[in-house]
């Protein structure tokens, strides 16, 4: 590990580090410049006698313009570069593997596509992009892995996403970066980056054990979502095959842009689906009657997450 910056272990680390290096060069240059000038002036113009000659200089438009323009240019370069890299950080590739993350005081739960769950240990495969869909059960937490250069606050009441492609096999610290109470500094977990072979073995459950409290649940979220779809009555109004019943069909719903009754439009993502289950009338799709009841208190956050996972498979 270098003393300056932690090891880089994700696809995103290099571009972040390049900007950091550039900002560091600029900063060191200006710091040395100002300090050197300050010290040089302090020595050269120190008061040697009470009647020492001084110059009456009040301003100088040329030099003032120069030292306004140069920092402006450098700052604009830093801004643009930072923004470009930020766009990469914020936009996961379509093929990313999804993992549901629940942060709560003071632990981390991970649920994988296969229905596997793990506690305080996230398992990912080397060189495969991962997209985390994260929610909090209580207060704000923040997912932070220094070696990946990623961080995202996790809020109660909505989903936040974060993605990365781990590039190095190993175990990395996952830290909670948003203060969340007395257990905050103990809200630590591990990210295990496994080679494709090891990951396949782990998926089959050969080698690694799940947390004892969670081992009992092994139905995948999609399966649970499918059950909920019929048990909780969604099917009465929403088809899965594209037929129009009472509400919009679930087929091809995820990722679509819907026109709303008020003329605006909305992208159907995890947060929109969650909101429409808990508060159906908040953003009504044009052409439908506001008849759906709220499922607040009927479907838990976990069940909503599972339902959304199911809806996402309906293509």
């Amino acid at each position: 590990m270098s003393t300056w910056i932690p090891e880089s272990a994700s696809n995103l680390a290099a571009s972040v580090d390049n900007i950091t290096l550039f900002v560091t060069i600029v900063s060191v240059f200006f710091f040395v410049l100002i300090s050197a000038v300050l010290v040089a002036f302090s020595i050269k113009y120190r008061r040697k006698s009470e009647d020492q000659e001084t110059a009456y200089i009040t301003h100088n438009p040329v030099i003032e313009t120069i030292w306004t323009i140069i920092p402006t240019i450098l700052l604009m370069v830093i801004f643009a570069w930072g923004w470009i890299a930020f766009k990469e950080l914020r936009n996961p590739p379509a093929e990313a593997i999804e993992v549901n993350v629940v942060a709560k005081q003071w632990l981390w739960e991970f649920e994988y596509f296969t229905g596997k769950k793990s506690l305080n240990e996230l398992f990912v495969q080397q060189n495969k992009p991962v997209r985390l869909i994260m929610r909090s059960d209580d207060v704000i937490h923040s997912f932070f892995v220094p070696q990946f250069r990623v961080k995202q606050d996790i809020l109660p009441g909505s989903y936040q996403q974060l993605w990365f492609t781990p590039t190095k096999v190993g175990t990395f610290d996952l830290l909670c970066a948003e203060y969340c109470g007395s257990g905050h500094s103990k809200m630590l977990a591990k990210v295990n980056v496994l080679s494709p072979e090891a990951f396949a073995r782990w998926e089959k459950g050969d080698e690694l054990e799940d947390g004892p409290a969670l081992a009992a649940i092994s139905v995948s979220p999609v399966e649970r979502g499918k059950d909920l779809y019929s048990q909780r009555g969604c099917l009465a109004c929403h088809s899965v095959d594209g037929k129009e019943v009472i509400g919009p069909t679930f087929k091809n719903l995820y990722g679509k842009t819907e026109k709303l009754a008020d003329g605006s439009s909305v992208l159907v993502d995890e947060n929109y689906l969650r909101e429409s289950i808990y508060e159906p009338q908040a953003k009504m799709v044009a052409g439908y009657a506001p008849t759906m009841p709220s499922f607040k208190g009927i479907l838990s956050e976990d069940e909503v997450t599972a339902l959304i996972e199911y809806i996402k498979t309906l293509k």
Binding site: S15, I19, L75, G82, W83, F86, R149
Partner: peptide, 28 residues
């Protein structure tokens, strides 16, 4: 005089935090 030197460090390190992608790593 120490204000000038130290405030310069404070200001320059603010630039790291203003740059979006770098702030993601350094935030909190």
């Amino acid at each position: 005089l120490s204000f000038i030197v130290l405030f310069t460090v404070g200001g320059l390190t603010g630039v790291y935090l203003g740059a979006l992608a770098v702030d993601v790593h350094l935030h909190d």
